[in-house]
């Protein structure tokens, strides 16, 4: 198992591990957890990322690794990160839907995100004009260190309820005000 993760150089899915080890799924998952335990003392660890498992360095060694590597400022811009967020939560969605939320054209941003392979086309919407639908890729998950889409941060449920309550109150006040007027 350790050997497979070392060789792959990319996230290995449970399915791929099952195929290579000829063990069943449950055994593979147990083995991965064992391996994660064994790595506890190591500078490396096994992370669950982009739908699979991958060997990675521990974050506490980032400064040292950084000294070895050349600096590269390649963070996503604010528009890019906002756009990819909207796509991640509403996928598949069209350019027009994103623009309705952001209030600006996202033409160039979509192109950049596609070039960086963080998003991809996911068919066409069955509406007039058949606009392109966009969805996030596995690389998107990898870029943000997410195991799957369910790991995306959520808005606090209480917060949503609170907002709904306020909206409700606002509507009621408006009704009362209109009645008085």
């Amino acid at each position: 198992m350790e050997c497979l993760l070392f060789v792959a150089g990319e996230p290995l899915t449970v399915k791929e591990l099952v195929k290579a080890t000829e063990a069943d799924e449950a055994a593979v998952i147990v083995a991965v957890h064992c391996l994660q335990d064994r790595y506890r003392e190591s500078a490396l660890h096994i992370v669950e990322i982009a739908g699979g498992y991958q060997m990675a360095t521990r974050p506490e060694y980032a400064p040292a690794v950084g000294k070895l590597l050349a600096p590269n400022a390649n963070k996503l811009s604010k528009p890019a990160i906002e756009t990819v967020t909207i796509i991640a939560y509403r996928q598949p969605c069209t350019q027009a839907e994103i623009e309705a939320i952001r209030g600006v054209s996202v033409d160039g941003v979509l192109k950049t995100l596609t070039e960086r392979e963080l998003i991809q086309e996911a068919g066409r919407k069955q509406t007039p004009g058949r606009p392109i639908l966009y969805a996030t890729t596995d690389l998107f998950l990898h870029y943000f260190g997410l195991a799957n889409l369910e790991e995306l941060p959520r808005l606090d449920e209480d917060e949503i309820e609170e907002q709904e309550r306020i909206v409700q109150e606002m509507a009621e006040t408006a009704l009362v005000a209109a009645g008085v007027a």
């Binding site: 060789v7 974050p59 967020t85």
Partner: peptide
């Protein structure tokens, strides 16, 4: 709605930073 996505984008920004602390081997 925009504020909501902006807040999530902020936390993804943090996820991006965290993730960039970790290094992988290329095949």
């Amino acid at each position: 709605e925009y504020g909501k996505y902006q807040a999530i984008a902020e936390s993804l920004r943090e996820a991006e930073r965290q993730r960039q602390m970790v290094f992988f081997r290329a095949p």
